[in-house]
Design a protein around this nucleic acid. Structure first.
Lengths: 269, 269
DNA sequence: CGCTGATATCTTCTGCCGTAAAGAGATCCG
DNA sequence: CGGATCTCTTTACGGCAGAAGATATCAGCG
């Protein structure tokens, strides 16, 4: 499920994201037993442990000793809660990177941090990217990347493409690992078991596979060997991540060389 | 929601995907009023029209003049149905590409086809990639890409990285557009309206934005102008797609140059 | 032809979900 | 103390996937 925030009162959503509600000194009625932060933390804990699909208002409420409906006092809807979870989780990421070695190692570090972040919080990958959440930490993440990439000397139109490419790549690679991690608990079948069963069935159901798909058979040859206890798929994806990032950065380097280093005009292809 | 296939009888799933069930001539009982193909087509129609989130067994059954439960006669669960939809839809893609101009234009064409395919069937992007569906058309798509990339002379380990990078990039870019297309109907707010409201609120709630996030402000400058009637976000993503693909292919070119240019098309030391 | 048993289809039911509506009870100001 | 206001619960609605079981439909046999 791709999760959209509700369209109800946009102002309130933004105020929640940027924490700009007034303290509200001494009002009538009972003291709030919960807070937005408490709720968001509980929701993140649920999503980390059981995945986005298992996240429900009732379950978050239960974790806080309340009913699901109690949350609606603090948060307009589930969609807004997800936005808050998203932006809060992003706060874990570092906001500055060492540029002493130039942009390339800095981008590599940035990508590595994001990669590991997605492993810790796979549910983040399910939040829609089409309509950005526009929270402070989402901007901080973008800010940190652009601060690095500005060193390349590329102009904004080209850089926007590079930024998208980087995000799409890291997210895509992370998604594959993340889903393979949640798949065992979601389906009750371990990775090894699943692959073993499926490859046996494939031979059974598609005889002459190697003849019908020679390129597929070829590219799956010369496979690297996973380390001790490392799941097969995860190993493949880790290797693919390293290789892919190298290729990507080589492409950026080429663009830099084409437009001239830290000073130069923009040329369209 | 990321959709996993049910773990129930894997053999039956594979048989359905590869269409290897025996015809079963003249059995007692009423003639089947439906077929797997009919159901899959109806389900694709629903998903194309209303998105994956709106796809339910009841709705598909309704479209065929049956209840939702009637489908379980033909298909083990919703997960398997989604796998069948996925592989059937992929059958639309071409399986061979012209290599006369070398690998670069061929990859560009391949990526363009996939990109447009995802625009036609955005729901495909919601099918989990961690555990491949292993249907014939999924393999055919991979086969067609590897057939092109083999021309580069790169070896399988490096090529696997390039393949992942390409898939992740095209999927990520397509996802952004696809979600922005479905967002208006899902939330009832048009893109223009949404952006206008949000950017006004952003200034209100985060004064001094440009000072706090100078790099973000900078990279959003020099924006290209959308064509007549082209949504703003969509225009940005289209530009990013072109730039990103160029950068990516430059990176491949660099890798090719590093391992030695492909004098002979097929084999390298 | 009519019966029997296999099979397809439909109905009912369970237990989830998000959230609207209404109200119980706590807490403060005047 | 009285009324206003707030938190939180209860109840209810319509939706979902799917289990269990009832019913309708047909082939082949006598």
């Amino acid at each position: 499920m791709v999760v959209f925030a509700g369209q109800g009162d946009a102002r309130r959503s933004m105020a929640l994201l940027w924490r700009t509600e007034e303290p509200g000194e001494s009002r009538p009625g009972p003291k709030p037993g919960l807070s937005v932060d408490l709720i968001v933390d509980a929701a993140i804990a649920v999503a980390d442990a059981e995945g986005m699909a298992a996240l429900s208002m009732r379950k978050v409420g239960e974790r806080l000793g309340r009913t699901g409906m109690a949350l609606y006092t603090y948060v307009p809807s589930k969609g807004e809660l997800v936005d808050l979870m998203y932006d809060k989780a992003l706060g874990e990421l570092p906001t500055a990177h060492d540029l002493a070695g130039g942009w390339r190692p800095a981008v590599t570090a940035w990508a590595g941090h994001l990669w590991h972040f997605y492993q810790r919080h796979p549910w983040v990958l399910q939040v829609s990217q089409a309509r950005p959440v526009l929270g402070p930490n989402e901007f901080a993440l973008l800010e940190s990347l652009v601060a690095i990439l500005r060193e390349t000397g590329l102009r904004p139109p080209a850089l926007r493409g590079v930024v998208s490419l980087l995000f799409d790549f890291v997210r895509g690679a992370a998604r594959t690992v993340a889903e393979s991690r949640q798949a065992p608990s979601a389906t009750g079948v371990s990775d090894e078991e699943w692959w073993h069963t499926r490859s046996r069935l494939l031979e059974e159901v598609a005889p002459g596979f190697a003849a019908r798909f020679p390129m597929v058979a070829w590219i799956e040859s010369e496979a690297g060997v996973p380390g001790e206890g490392e799941p097969y798929l995860e190993h493949q994806v880790n290797e693919a991540f390293t290789v892919g990032l190298t290729v990507l950065l080589d492409g950026v380097q080429a663009a830099v060389g084409r437009t001239g280093p830290p000073a130069g005009p923009v040329t369209a292809p």
